[in-house]
Amino acid sequence: MRNRDLTPSEKSQATFEPRIVAFFCNWCTYLAADLAGTSRMKYAPNVRVIRVMCSGRVDPQFVLDAFAHGADGVFIGGCHPGDCHYQEGNYKTLRRFHLLKRVLQQMGIEDERCRLEWISAAEAERVRSTINDMVEKVRALGPLDLIPTEEKVSAEEVAV
């Protein structure tokens, strides 16, 4: 690659640390994240985990609210199909997720910013690798930056 000056957006990208909100099921992915801790695995510090009893509790509003409040990515972790602690909650998550992804696509939010993974209580390594992978992919996309700032509002108001 040629040496050249970085554009301002590239500069902000270089220092950009993605913010990712995660919703982890209490019985699988949350436990797997605990296990990653007890196993002293190391992973990127960009994810903030919110515990829910089941991935089925994850209201699509939560995902949109996270994006609206500055998240660059949202990660939902649930039990493997057939393994839901509450029998079938994760299937509802899966269905909602598929429709939500279509809405996000129409709204111009890239696919990699919203992720659903089935991670069992034993799969600490998948917590580590998924988080690292997602952080890198979202980093490559750059900030989503949905919080309205005065700057952005005035830019909106620029007339033709």
């Binding site: 009893m53 509790r57 509450y86």
Partner: peptide
């Protein structure tokens, strides 16, 4: 009720 919250989200 076992408290999964699926109905709440739905």
């Amino acid at each position: 009720c076992k408290g999964c919250g699926t109905c709440v989200a739905g």
